[in-house]
Design a binder for these strands. Structure first.
Lengths: 253, 253
DNA sequence: ATACACCTTTACGCAGCGTGAAGGTCAAAC
DNA sequence: GTTTGACCTTCACGCTGCGTAAAGGTGTAT
């Protein structure tokens, strides 16, 4: 089967301009041109275009795609790994931003006040690193190692009140599970309350909450003997029950 | 507090060129200029820039951002909440993209079989989406959910071999900690090996590994009685020792 | 022969800056 | 007092991945 630009464009769902551009930059040349200069594409080009569009969907630049599909020696997996790193970086940044927005919200509600610096924390990953390198030394000299550790680790900054809150939350989770288990329904109100309390509890430890991770932890509660033993002390089967409740709570099946 | 371009740029993690461009297009004008034409930004401009960058991160065009934040009805608190939702959604999309990239990688490595046909089909689905944008959204949501389900299935569908591997890993972690503690050095080779084994172990449970989360878990090992009791059975102080080793391993101080 | 849908190349435009160039300013150091 | 060096200023062109004319040639059905 042979295609003209428009035909192939229709088939692939791109514009004819795109195909001409791909010809221009040498990423996809037509099989041949007819007597009057029309671009004629064949089966190979169709396949190649599919590859191109596939990588494009993944957000790979045309330059990179060219390298991937033209040089057989070029390892596509390697290129993709690099690309993945970039994406992960982006997600990290996004996570920071989300925390930041949440902070801003609570700041707007008057609970905490944010410094100018804090306001931008999500946007400037590099800057943070640089700052820590710069100021880290000074602070270390001034206040000693212990303080540095404390100031750096968010988790270690837990105040007494927070620590008490965590302990209390932990107890509440346990007692709520106990009550919920009497209903026997992990989707019930009490069980869901327990799952919510549990979420609140882990957010004290986790810098970023995600449903996936929460559900993952729930799985671990059953899979891992330490957790299982701990929760089953509340009542046999409590680990499974909590897992089921969290799974429902997080909507992760 | 007043800032020059570079100062504000550093604070916000953008380039000074960006600030000049924002001035040029009228989206963020300096509070005033000094006698020699230097741009001077004040508190209001800092806040405004923060808003701009929030929206920018969402992929909103600067033109739109301008409209949004100059609109008199603009409610910052409301906007932020909406904002967070969108950020979360964006992260979801990003996660999807990452999963797809990872799929492709492992496909390229021949671990899973993703035939050309499948690739083509996946692409065809996309084309259908594009053709019918209304239904496309629904499909995208479905596709997203499926992927999430599948990634969850990873945890659920652990094979026997994997389960054995996990158990074995767990034991290895414990014994390695025991040995490492005799050296007394959490930065030493053995302790770092333990931290690495520990990482391998948790990656069986976590869909995504991050140094931050790993360090966070390490903190929990000390803060949470359950973990502490478990590890201290190996040897008193083992929880703290493991935490320190992991902190060093992850470089999270 | 005429219409009309297709094709060609050339070339400017877009967003959101990066990256010079060419020059002025400020604080500190000599 | 001037020299250094880090700032600042305003042009202005370059980049990606095309969209969108403009100006013209081609294919084929009527």
């Amino acid at each position: 089967m042979e295609y003209t630009v428009q035909k192939l464009a229709q088939l692939a769902g791109v514009s004819s301009r795109t195909l001409r551009y791909y010809d221009e930059i040498g990423i996809l040349k037509p099989a041949r041109t007819n007597s009057s200069g029309y671009r004629i594409y064949g089966q190979q080009e169709v396949d190649r275009l599919q590859q191109i569009l596939f990588y494009r969907e993944l957000g790979v630049s045309l330059d990179q795609i060219k390298e991937i599909i033209t040089a057989p020696a070029f390892d596509a997996a390697d290129a993709l790994r690099e690309h993945r790193e970039k994406l992960l970086e982006k997600r990290k940044q996004l996570d920071l931003l989300i925390t930041n927005v949440e902070k801003t919200i609570s700041s707007a509600e008057g609970r905490t006040t944010m410094s100018d610096k804090e306001k931008f924390e999500g946007f400037k990953k590099k800057m943070i690193e640089d700052n820590e390198k710069q100021y880290g030394k000074e602070i270390r000299e001034k206040y000693g190692e212990e303080t540095v550790e404390k100031s750096n680790a968010k988790l270690m900054n837990m105040t007494r009140e927070e620590h008490e809150a965590v302990t209390k939350l932990s107890e509440e989770v346990n007692s709520t599970i106990g009550q919920a288990m009497e209903t026997g329904n992990p989707a019930g109100e009490l069980a869901q309350k327990a799952a919510d309390l549990h979420k609140q509890w882990i957010t004290y430890y986790w810098s970023e909450y995600s449903k996936e991770a929460h559900a993952g932890l729930a799985e671990m509660y059953v899979a891992d003997e330490r957790f299982k033993a701990y929760y089953d002390k509340i009542r046999p089967g409590a680990a499974e029950f909590l897992r089921d409740a969290i799974k429902i709570y997080t909507g992760q099946q």
